[in-house]
């Protein structure tokens, strides 16, 4: 059973991202949206954590939220639009939102 984890809170305000990464299964995906895309801020601790988490092909970020904050996801993950968000939610067996 694979799960898509969706986080929308800034990693600088709480521990959702680190908690999620601790629980993330090897087949699970992670979608960053809203203020959670600040985790991709260059030179930041959350970015270093993501880079060390072996998320090849499993890390996604909502494109409009990246654009709104002028943040790039580079080759660490993939930017997705809403149709791709819908497709991602169906690609994984379950979706868990870190509300």
């Amino acid at each position: 059973m694979s799960t898509l984890h969706v986080i929308c809170h800034s990693p600088f305000g709480d521990n959702r991202l680190s908690s999620c990464l601790r629980l993330l299964g090897s087949a699970d995906g992670l979608l960053l949206c809203g203020d959670a895309v600040y985790a991709l801020q260059p030179g930041s601790e959350p970015l270093r954590t993501l880079q060390a988490s072996q998320l090849d092909g499993r890390l996604f970020a909502l494109d409009e939220d990246l654009q709104a904050r002028a943040i790039a996801i580079s080759d660490l993950g993939k930017a997705v639009d809403y149709p791709a968000f819908v497709a991602l939610s169906l690609h994984y067996d379950k979706v868990n939102s870190w509300l």
Partner: peptide, 8 residues
């Protein structure tokens, strides 16, 4: 799928 939206 159940999709939950909340937070920021």
């Amino acid at each position: 799928r159940l999709m939950c939206f909340g937070g920021d």
